[in-house]
Design a protein around this nucleic acid. Structure first.
Lengths: 237, 237
DNA sequence: GAAACTAAGTATCATTAAGACACTTAGTTT
DNA sequence: AAACTAAGTGTCTTAATGATACTTAGTTTC
């Protein structure tokens, strides 16, 4: 048998393949809180429970796993998040009643304002504070996924400025520091935080300022590729 | 329709699900070199090319993705590696001619001596130096996988002693340092390397020594959970 | 319009961990 | 016994964060 024959025959076989889905833990920052996007399940299984946005891979529509994810997120939020990163793949016979299943989980970050409008109009899609999410009875093993995503986000906050993606394009340093503090769950040293960002030249001063009560804060924008930069040393836990 | 009916009906449907495999980049250290285990493909597609050890998830045999991996590795090497970690999941319509496919890739580490005997008896399973592997025409997208596994291993070598798992249970500090140097591709400061390991108390002195030419080196053993320890600062690249 | 207030941003010293490199030590070989 | 080799240590320098007090730029209050 040559290769062509083999492939042709293979494709006709009825395989006992696991179900494959892709899920996202989409974080944002709103009202001084870290929030996660959840969707209320309208169908079995786990009907009525909160779940992560996601869905089945479509062989015809999707050019890759990340494409599936982006398609699904666009359905729910109307926009494509500026930061998407693969997190971990969960698989096993009992995580979904429909059978042996796999989900490729992603972490994504987005500014709250970017998708505020589309979310508000759909009642079964909601931003929930991360602290509440952990106490909710989420569908499937989605709680494990959320927790792992958060762990990883904490690490990122200690050695990168990736968390900046939960903010709008321009933001102040105090805002960014607060985002990191909310993620890590501890206050940070203002000077240490700013020093390393300045040294690595990760932000551009837009020249504009924003004032609320005290001295106005300078507005910055992320430089190209700043998200890829890792400090050689972590901040203290 | 209630949930039971839904599930029952669901299971009978013939889904257009992607093929799901699991692959391992298994590293070891032998003859002062970092090596990777490869298998010569005996079947279509990509027949005759070198590929990563791995295979299809078995719904009946496997209790999870890692279980699939371990089953496959045991088939090839006869043993279960002491270090296994999920790396990344690759998926898309064109990486395998048989159709839309996914592979969940793992990194695994093992001492060369542990599986020497079983490997030697099978001619289509072979340890190849990492430097050579990169120039070989590997099957599927396995070269991408190998490269990503190596990148991650380099990082681990900079902030952990995970690479110790390519050595036998007891080893000397000069050996461990050399492993790190081979992985990173640069010499390291002896003092810096030792100081941090000592401070974090990651190794236990077995009391025994091993001599080759000069002063005999002390033999150490990894402490429980030492692989989970991350230094807060990276060594220089 | 000046003083008080508030939060942004800076200066500076202490601390910690790595880099560099010379030195000592414990065995083996000649 | 001297020379040799590689393991292991001492110590000073360098680099980055921690801690804390201070200055600055606007707003609010009287």
């Amino acid at each position: 048998m040559n290769e062509e024959d083999y492939i042709a025959r293979y494709k006709k076989r009825n395989f006992d393949a696991p179900l494959v889905t892709v899920d996202a833990v989409l974080f944002t920052y709103h009202e001084n809180t870290l929030k996660t996007l959840l969707v209320k399940r309208s169908a079995y299984p786990e009907k009525g429970k909160w779940a992560l946005p996601g869905g089945f891979v479509s062989e015809s529509e999707d050019d890759g796993l990340e494409a599936t994810l982006i398609r699904k997120l666009k359905e729910k939020t109307g926009v494509i998040p500026p930061y998407v990163e693969q997190l971990y793949t969960f698989g096993g016979p009992s995580r979904d009643r429909r059978g042996w299943s796999i989900t490729v989980a992603y972490t994504a970050l987005i500014a709250h304002q970017s998708c505020e409008i589309s979310i508000d109009t759909v009642s079964d899609v909601n931003w929930l504070p991360f602290s509440k999410v952990c106490q909710l009875p989420l569908a499937f093993d989605h709680l494990d996924i959320v927790n792992r995503a958060h762990e990883r986000l904490v690490q990122k906050a200690l050695y990168s400025i990736v968390p900046a993606y939960v903010l709008p394009e321009t933001f102040t340093l105090p805002e960014l520091q607060h985002v990191h503090e909310v993620i890590i769950g501890k206050p940070l040293q203002k000077k240490s935080f700013r020093r390393r960002i300045e040294q690595a030249n990760l932000l551009v001063d837009t020249g504009e300022k924003r004032a609320e009560k005290g001295r106005p804060a300078a507005l910055y924008r992320m430089r190209e590729d700043s998200a890829a930069y890792n400090f050689i040393r972590n901040l203290e836990l």
